[in-house]
Simulated scan of single mutants.
Amino acid sequence: MPELFGIRLGAILVTGFILTTMFWHLDNSPKGVQEQNGFFAFAMSTTFYTCFEAIPVFLQERYIFMRETAYNAYCRSSYVLTHSIISIPSLIVLSISFVAIPFWTVGLTGDLHGFLFFFFTILASFWAGRSFVTFISGVVSHIMLGFTVVVAILAYFLLFSGFFISRNQIRLYWIWFHYISLVRYPYEAVLQKEFDNPTKCFVKGVQMFDNTPFGTAPLAVKLKLLQI
C-alpha cells in the first residue's frame, strides 16, 4: 500500500539523517572505531525493525490465500515468488535512500565499491527482514501478537549478533541463537569490509591508552610511558 511505503520511506530518511548528524566524519581512532561499530549495529537493526508493515498485509490476505490455494487457483510457491518479486523495487528505493545519506558523511571506506557493497548488504537485510516478518505473520493469527513476537525475536537477534557480547563470551547453550541471528550476518559483513585492511592503523601513539585507566592521564605522562 502506498501509504505504508511512504511512512516506511519517511522513517528511513529520518533515521539516515539522525545517523548522519550523530556519526559525522568518524576517524580511525579507537573512539572512532567504537562509534563505527555502534553505527553499523544500529543501521543493521533498523533495516529489520522497519519491516513491520508486512505483518498486517499477510494477515489481511490470509483467508483469501487459503481459499484460493484450496481451490487450486494457484500454488503456494507462486504466491511467495510473486510477493518476493513485486517487493524488489520498493526495497531498492529504501536501500538507496538509507545508504546514500550516511555513507559519505559518516566516512565509510571503499568509495564506489564500498558504496555498492553497503547497498547490497542493506538490500539483503531488508529482504531478509521482510521475509522473516511475513513468516511470523503466517504463524500467528493476530496483528498485536505478531508485533509482540517480531519485536521480541528481533531484540534477541540484536543481542546475540556480536555487538553487545562477542561470540566467545556467549554461553554454550545460547550459541545457537548467535548463528540463527539475522542481524549477525550483515553486521559482520560490513565490519569485515570496513576494517579488514592491513594497511590501516586504528591505534596511533597515545591513542592506545584510550578506554584504559591511563586514558585520563596527562599527555606528558602518556608520552613518557611510550618511551619506556
Rank of each mutant, 00 (worst) to 15 (best):
L4C: 10
Q192R: 12
Q227C: 02
I64Y: 10
P102W: 10
V151F: 15
M144T: 10
F147V: 15
H25A: 00
S78T: 07
R167Y: 11
P186F: 03
S45P: 06
T15H: 06
H178E: 07
D27M: 01
L19G: 01
I228V: 11
L225H: 08
F214T: 02
A11E: 07
P30D: 05
F48L: 06
R184Y: 03
V190D: 02
F202V: 11
S29N: 05
T216I: 07
S97F: 05
T21E: 09
L59T: 02
D27S: 02
P30Q: 00
W127Y: 06
G6F: 13
A70K: 08
H113C: 14
N28R: 03
G146L: 09
T15A: 14
M66S: 13
Y63G: 07
T82W: 15
R62S: 00
G110Y: 01
V14D: 01
F163C: 13
I136G: 10
M1V: 10
L191Q: 01
N197T: 03
F117Q: 08
Y74M: 07
F58R: 05
V221A: 13
Q60A: 08
V33C: 02
M1R: 09
F42Y: 13
T50A: 15
C51E: 11
C201Q: 15
R171I: 09
H178T: 03
A128Q: 08
N28G: 05
I180N: 04
R171A: 14
Y74D: 03
L123Q: 04
G114L: 13
I96S: 02
S95L: 04
